[in-house]
Design a protein around this nucleic acid. Structure first.
Lengths: 115, 115
DNA sequence: TCCATGTTTCAAACAATATTGAAACATTGA
DNA sequence: TCAATGTTTCAATATTGTTTGAAACATGGA
């Protein structure tokens, strides 16, 4: 995952309404939730909800599919996992590191340059 | 970790400069980096850097300690791990779930209702 | 003590993001 | 086809976050 994508994913989650939406989708699992149901669960008004769902989808954190007159949204677990990987990458410069950063990182030998 | 803290942590990371700063700190490991060194690595102006370091510290993503006339910043790995845990919590409603969300969650077969 | 270095604060200008309500679009079933 | 339901779009408004430069503060060494 690139920095740009990670930034988009983080920005998508770093907002009250969207974090609530995403958590509802994560809980719902692969079956997902209809937009209206998400609105019921979170209390977000339709137009605002649609805006935030679009943001999540654009950041790759959610996917949508039409099902009759409903639009079903699901959490994108692979993007989420890529984000978690990105955040735990390069821990301690790739050197073996102390328990302070376990279990988030593995010893690693690559040396990376800052941008 | 509470939603409020997770939101603060996500907001702290969801910004260009701060994500770069945080990654530099993660790479530096427990030894940390002086503020000025972070500025050199990232090209962020002093006053802006100070603002962002304060944001990271306030969100619990970084800690600081005075060392002579330098201020050393370190990544807070336990907050980072708490955030990762928060994001992977409750996957698929705690039910067994398909490979789509592995390795973040464990297979489970129950169907749960959202709150 | 004074000076040089490192860091932070402040307020103003600037830029990006969120909410609202009305209207439009899409789908289904009568 | 029409009416009902579900969802999205749009533009205006409100809110929040970021950068800048000058000044202040803190520390260590001459």
């Amino acid at each position: 995952m690139e920095t740009k994508a990670a930034l988009a994913a983080l920005a998508a989650l770093a907002q009250d309404s969207r974090l609530a939406i995403f958590r509802a989708l994560v809980q719902a699992g692969p079956a997902g939730l209809a937009a209206g149901r998400i609105g019921e669960l979170t209390g977000i008004a339709p137009s605002s909800l649609s805006f935030h769902l679009k943001e999540l989808a654009h950041a790759g954190m959610a996917d949508s599919q039409q099902a009759g007159r409903f639009v079903i949204y699901t959490a994108n677990f692979s993007t989420m996992n890529a984000l978690l990987g990105f955040l735990t990458d390069n821990c301690c410069g790739g050197n073996p590191c102390s328990p302070v950063c376990s279990p988030a990182c593995e010893p690693d030998t690559t040396e990376k340059e800052l941008p």
